[in-house]
Simulated scan of single mutants.
Amino acid sequence: MLKAFAELSTPLVADACVRVGVGLRVAPAGVGPVVAGRRVAGRVLPVRHYGSVDVFLEAFGAAEPGDVLVVDNGGRVDEACLGDLAVLEAKAAGVAGVVVWGLHRDTPELVEIGLPLFSYGALPLGPLRLDEREPEALVTARFGTHLVSAGDVVFGDADGVLFVPAARVDEVLEVAGGIARTERAQAERIRSGDTLRRQTAFDDYLVRRAADPSYSFRQHLRRVGGAIEE
């Protein structure tokens, strides 16, 4: 999955979801890579954290190579829910990355381990609580307002994290690739002096909008083959 995502980005995947009608499930702003430039893509391995590492160890028993551990810690910023030992064990289990709705710790060790990890950031303090575990602890994970499961694929890069149903991934990535090619061609033309306004026939758009206020720029872009808004 990471190979298929290699030439794409989360903005392109998001735009493709809009294009094909896949509901957007984007992680809250602020979730990003611990190490700049790291990317992640793979099937969701969901887990809900309750204060103890045992739930991670249990999840790893069901991991398949290339899975991405998606940790629901409720977006808490008063504790770091995992550190170097849990991430090292994830790597040993064949997990391709970790995405946390919350915080991490042991940053220097995590950098050395090298497994891509996304979170809100770092905090020295680990969990001081032990909450009652829910039956869905290894079935689904909440991430912001969204619920994800092994039926989803997660993508992450410098712009953030989002989730796509596994059944629609091939379609979404194909469309994202088409948008990428269009945008690269547009960018090259701008660099060569052909402005985006000229490429998108922006003056024509203004004339049409004046005659029909309901005519949107997105409609116009679809007509002329632009891709800058979706």
Rank of each mutant, 00 (worst) to 15 (best):
M1A: 15
S9W: 07
A14V: 11
L24H: 05
L24Y: 08
V26A: 04
V26P: 00
V26I: 14
A27Y: 04
P28R: 05
G32R: 10
P33Y: 10
G37D: 10
G37Y: 08
G42D: 03
G42V: 02
V44Q: 01
S52L: 08
V53K: 04
E58A: 10
F60M: 07
F60H: 06
F60T: 03
G61F: 07
D67F: 00
D67Y: 00
V68A: 07
L69K: 01
V70P: 00
N73E: 04
D78V: 05
E89G: 02
A96W: 05
W101T: 00
D106A: 06
G114I: 08
G114E: 10
P116S: 09
G121H: 06
A122P: 03
A122N: 05
D131T: 07
D131A: 14
P135R: 10
P135Y: 08
R142S: 06
L147N: 03
S149F: 01
F155D: 00
A158C: 11
D159V: 05
G160D: 05
E171P: 11
T182F: 12
T182S: 14
E183I: 15
A185K: 15
A185P: 12
Q186L: 15
S192E: 15
D194V: 13
T200E: 12
D204V: 15
R209L: 12
A210Q: 14
P213T: 06
Y215N: 08
F217V: 07
R218H: 12
Q219F: 05
H220N: 08
L221H: 08
G225T: 11
E230Q: 14
